[in-house]
């Protein structure tokens, strides 16, 4: 039974890490679109760096959530 519980924990933690893929796609999407926009109109790029970081932060936060869930499963259950 103990091993079963551990199994569940580890499986859950591993599955939670799949969430990081979503965050990776999100951050990549934000950065890629920023880059393509910046290459089209380089003069407007500097003024949008703040927006870029805000967007990346929002996308990344969700990946951090999945990481947190994994950690909670591993250490705190």
């Amino acid at each position: 039974m103990e091993n079963l519980g551990q199994l569940g924990q580890y499986l859950g933690a591993g599955l939670a890490c799949i969430g990081m893929a979503g965050a990776a796609m999100g951050v990549g999407n934000v950065a890629g679109n920023y880059l393509s926009g910046a290459l089209r109109n380089p003069s407007a790029a500097a003024s949008q760096t703040a927006t870029l970081f805000i967007g990346m932060a929002f996308a990344e936060a969700l990946g951090i959530f999945s990481f947190l869930v994994a950690l909670l499963l591993l250490f705190a259950v």
Partner: peptide
């Protein structure tokens, strides 16, 4: 929540 966990999570990770 996201404001705090983002910072702590990044540093901790």
């Amino acid at each position: 929540v996201s404001h705090s966990i983002r910072l702590a999570g990044n540093v901790m990770a």
